[in-house]
Design a binder for these strands. Sequence first.
DNA 1: GATGAATGAGGATTCATTCAT
DNA 2: TATGAATGAATCCTCATTCAT
Lengths: 202, 202, 202, 202
Amino acid sequence: MTAPRYQRRKEDRPREISEAAFEVFAEKGYAAARVDEVAKRAGVSKGLLYLYFDTKEELFKAVIKRVVTRRIDALLLALEETDLSSEEFVRGPLLEFMKQIPGSPVAVVIRLLIAEGHRHPDLVSYYWENVVSRGLAAISRFIERGVERGEFRDTAVTGLPQLVLSPMMLSMIWRILFTTRELDTDRLMETQIEMILAYIKA
Amino acid sequence: MTAPRYQRRKEDRPREISEAAFEVFAEKGYAAARVDEVAKRAGVSKGLLYLYFDTKEELFKAVIKRVVTRRIDALLLALEETDLSSEEFVRGPLLEFMKQIPGSPVAVVIRLLIAEGHRHPDLVSYYWENVVSRGLAAISRFIERGVERGEFRDTAVTGLPQLVLSPMMLSMIWRILFTTRELDTDRLMETQIEMILAYIKA
Amino acid sequence: MTAPRYQRRKEDRPREISEAAFEVFAEKGYAAARVDEVAKRAGVSKGLLYLYFDTKEELFKAVIKRVVTRRIDALLLALEETDLSSEEFVRGPLLEFMKQIPGSPVAVVIRLLIAEGHRHPDLVSYYWENVVSRGLAAISRFIERGVERGEFRDTAVTGLPQLVLSPMMLSMIWRILFTTRELDTDRLMETQIEMILAYIKA
Amino acid sequence: MTAPRYQRRKEDRPREISEAAFEVFAEKGYAAARVDEVAKRAGVSKGLLYLYFDTKEELFKAVIKRVVTRRIDALLLALEETDLSSEEFVRGPLLEFMKQIPGSPVAVVIRLLIAEGHRHPDLVSYYWENVVSRGLAAISRFIERGVERGEFRDTAVTGLPQLVLSPMMLSMIWRILFTTRELDTDRLMETQIEMILAYIKA
DNA sequence: GATGAATGAGGATTCATTCAT
DNA sequence: TATGAATGAATCCTCATTCAT
């Protein structure tokens, strides 16, 4: 009648633990997160957790990497394969993508990296190589394509893809810090896109 | 022969401690900062530190508040009293102010707030009330003044002063995370100002 | 294609495990020896190990007993059945036996007993009854026989067979502790025998 | 009325802790000794213990060194300064010294070194340099002096001071392992000395 | 005021042992 | 039999905080 003490589910464990860990790290931050709590939320003993992750730090890294890698790929693929004109793509899929980031786990990861990046340079490098530099490069290539096609002028924006992303970044930080204070983050990003397009359209 | 231990004036102690604390929090983050280390850097005993600050958390809050409050005032004053046209002020003093923020202690405070804000809502409120909302309001008022004077059109930017600040925010995060990776943060902010002005000028 | 897992006969398992365990205990000592490691070296699962040995402690005792019992028997038999004169036997077989002990598994067992004997009085008793007291008694009887035959005088040595063994003991300890420091342990034992014979020969 | 929670006794703490630690290590061995227990016996909190000794291992080393260093010095001094003839000194002070070793803390240290030496090579080196090699050298010099004075013949014993000590070693191990079994360790050492003198006297 | 020795609750990690498969 | 995933008590160590001096 009682729940079985043992449940052999080797396949699922790493994911279960890593999901629970994400929650706890998200709520408490790295230092204040308790391994005990992660294990409890994963429905697993502390010992098992250490069977899959050597240290709390390894667990942290694994969690960060898991969350981060996935959603960037979809965007990059869309960017490469789209048939839309540059302007249509920017107003459509790119804007949509940016709008959903501040409320997504990615924002949590950013917060954790800001807080703990100092002591995990390899994690920051990983994030840089797999997410940031790829994302920026894609946006840059995309703007350049618009320039080549005669859609856009060649302005300072071409070399500064960060301009496209900066309201997304501010929105993320805003939500992290000022959950209760109003800010129409969608409109913020829309306006930036509007402004940039107005600025670079031929 | 011995160092003049008693020469230092008592009234400087809280400031000395709080400066040392700022350094340590900046380097290590809240959780990894050691009270011992703060005391050592301040050149006082741990006991004395606890005479001025009841807990590590109180010390943290005091430090954050101290750093933050000061530099915002200068800007706000300048904003109110300036004789420059709106465009001149934006291109001049405002841009200058923004450029120096990412490398200033304010950036450290932002990092600490992002990392620890969760558990110190009062600190976030304090920061909101004393810094963010005042800063944003000032920028808003300033844009409105431009509109009133006929310098600017009334666009979405009027209600979204965050647009002006978003590249500064991204620059701050960039420096925090990617110290070694190149980004011309000054140019980023200049281009945004350029774009905004092009967008809102009548 | 796969290794012949099931070819190995079941009845060898306890011995295989116990040999692996001896290696690990020898290298690490009791406390630092890991049951995991023993199982891995024996090429079996941890579960199986526990099928044959109830606890780590039982395994330890089994290992100690296994190593110890065997080689003493040969010597005792030789002692009883020899046709050599007492002096010849001492200079020959006995000396040979002692010389090979410090480098043999027996030395490892002694080290383990010295380290852990405290908490395993039954193990010490076992060792005492099966090895030490039998060995000493044999040597004593042998000396007495020499006295009876008129080969030896009746001196304090008769009641102190430990005298014969003490350089062997020192050699063992020496090798355990000071592996790299030189000591001609063979010569040490030879000289002791020489001295003893000179002392007790009629 | 209650005992004061705090007792500032900086001077005495290291010794008190180290004495308590010696007791616990002696009873349990290194691995099974609990830091908690050491602290409790020293009448001190766990935290304080770590104020004086960085790790359990450091504590162990400190304890071993403390016990060992002291008593060897007295003997070496006596050896150098004695006015006695070699034979008188051997029969007198040297024998006395050896007799008291097996029941002294030195025996405990030997046991700990045999058990843990493997993993603390620096400790073994320390012991070798400060105790064993000095002690052996002193005995060697002493025998040589006897030879020079014409008291002793020059035999194999001259180069093997270990012969003098081997019954002491066996006695130590005997007491460690077979506390309850009878062995007249004093007589063992006396007889060895007797034998050696008989063997080397001119 | 000022010190820093002393405290002890709390946390990461290990590992002998169990048991569902 | 045989496996190895799973358990959780036990242990070392840390560090914010206290308080005798």
